[in-house]
């Protein structure tokens, strides 16, 4: 009985401690003031307690973001652990908000907390979901845009976990390129 009790109390620890952030676009305030840390967790149980408690991404109002980042990394390019990195970007069509968005976002979160990128999981910084009228976006952010082997491995595994077919390609953009883009098109560094 004691063993059963002990087992029921054991929590399943994650490799990393993660922080969930929420961003709501209120024009009259500074950008940083619109970004809020929701909470941190480091066990499977606490992840589900949080996930089942918060509003699904598809129900957020336009202009809002969720971000999940390793503790100590802020969800912005400027963070020292993001600035040399980039992101694998998934752009969704408008109608996919009610069909695919929540599934893709949950799969993205599970890839992160489950450390599903094998030896390259430590290259992952976090993930962001942007709810936008012109089309929602989900991205996994990695640490070093120049680490081609790590970045392409993460992209391939990510695409597989999302169940995207071979014909569908996803692109990786370095934050430095996104930050300084001259047109609406950002240079794509890798494709899988």
């Amino acid at each position: 009985q004691q063993l059963a009790l002990a087992q029921s109390l054991v929590k399943y620890p994650l490799q990393n401690r993660w922080a969930l952030w929420f961003f709501k676009n209120e024009k009259n305030r500074l950008w940083q003031a619109n970004l809020r840390l929701v909470t941190k967790f480091s066990t499977v149980e606490d992840f589900w307690a949080l996930y089942d408690h918060i509003k699904p991404a598809s129900k957020l109002s336009c202009g809002c973001d969720y971000s999940l980042f390793k503790d100590g990394i802020e969800p912005m390019w400027e963070d020292s652990q993001n600035m040399r990195g980039g992101r694998w970007l998934i752009t969704l069509a408008k109608q996919q908000r009610h069909t695919k968005l929540d599934c893709f976002w949950l799969d993205t979160l599970l890839c992160l907390i489950g450390e599903m990128f094998d030896d390259y999981s430590n290259e992952v910084c976090g993930a962001v979901i942007n709810i936008r009228a012109k089309g929602d976006k989900i991205a996994i952010w990695t640490r070093e845009a120049e680490h081609q082997e790590a970045v392409t491995h993460i992209g391939r595994v990510y695409k597989e976990h999302l169940g995207l077919s071979q014909e569908v390609t996803i692109g990786y953009q370095a934050h430095a390129d996104t930050a300084t883009k001259s047109s609406s098109l950002t240079k794509t560094k890798f494709v899988v």
Partner: peptide, 20 residues
């Protein structure tokens, strides 16, 4: 040793956790 969990375990956990 790295703490890794696969998708099935994590999803299964949500089900068990929700039914507790």
């Amino acid at each position: 040793e790295k703490k890794r969990y696969d998708r099935e375990f994590l999803l299964g956990f949500q089900f068990i956790f929700a039914s507790m």
